[in-house]
């Protein structure tokens, strides 16, 4: 049974009951409309209902299946989806920073995954080169980053 981790207010992670993904959420949340897309599906499949959806799960068939990352960015950046975007299936702790940068804000990780480990991985890289859903501007808008001269190689 996977453990669910959620990003709340852009930073905090809360560990939710392992069974949460199906059963023990408050009743209101459970009846909220949601959909699961597999990484082999096209995001366009859910566009007609997008404004009603409160949760989209993208199920990774394998953690090396990178389609889910592009799907997430499309949902967030092109189609303006603002509600929960959950990574499910074969997801590794090591990937959650990249997943969050692509717009995921909930992660079902293998049972036993510790909150501290998730936090470490989530904030592994302090600065990133690329613009993404968390950092709307790429690195070159802050270009005055040169190291002092003695750092020449």
């Amino acid at each position: 049974m996977p453990t669910l981790f959620k990003l709340i207010n852009g930073g905090l992670i809360t560990k939710v009951d392992p069974t949460a993904s199906n059963q023990d959420l408050n009743p209101q949340e459970q009846i909220q409309p949601h959909i699961t897309l597999r990484t082999s599906d096209a995001v366009e499949a859910c566009l007609s209902r997008l404004s009603q959806l409160k949760r989209i799960s993208i199920e990774f068939l394998s953690f090396t299946d990178g389609r889910g990352y592009s799907m997430a960015r499309l949902l967030r950046e092109r189609y303006g989806y603002r509600e929960e975007l959950r990574a499910t299936g074969d997801v590794l702790c090591d990937q959650i920073q990249a997943l969050s940068r692509c717009g995921f804000d909930a992660f079902e990780l293998p049972d036993g995954t510790r909150l501290t480990a998730v936090l470490t991985h989530l904030r592994m890289f302090q600065q990133n080169y690329q613009a993404d859903t968390l950092q709307p501007t790429p690195w070159w808008l802050n270009v005055e980053q040169a190291l002092p001269e003695q750092q020449d190689v």
């Binding site: 990178g66 990352y69 960015r73 080169y129 690329q130 690195w139």
Partner: peptide
């Protein structure tokens, strides 16, 4: 190099 280094979307290409 900078753009492609640890690009969040393209780390697991086909």
């Amino acid at each position: 190099r900078q753009w492609s280094t640890l690009h969040p979307e393209f780390a697991h290409l086909p």
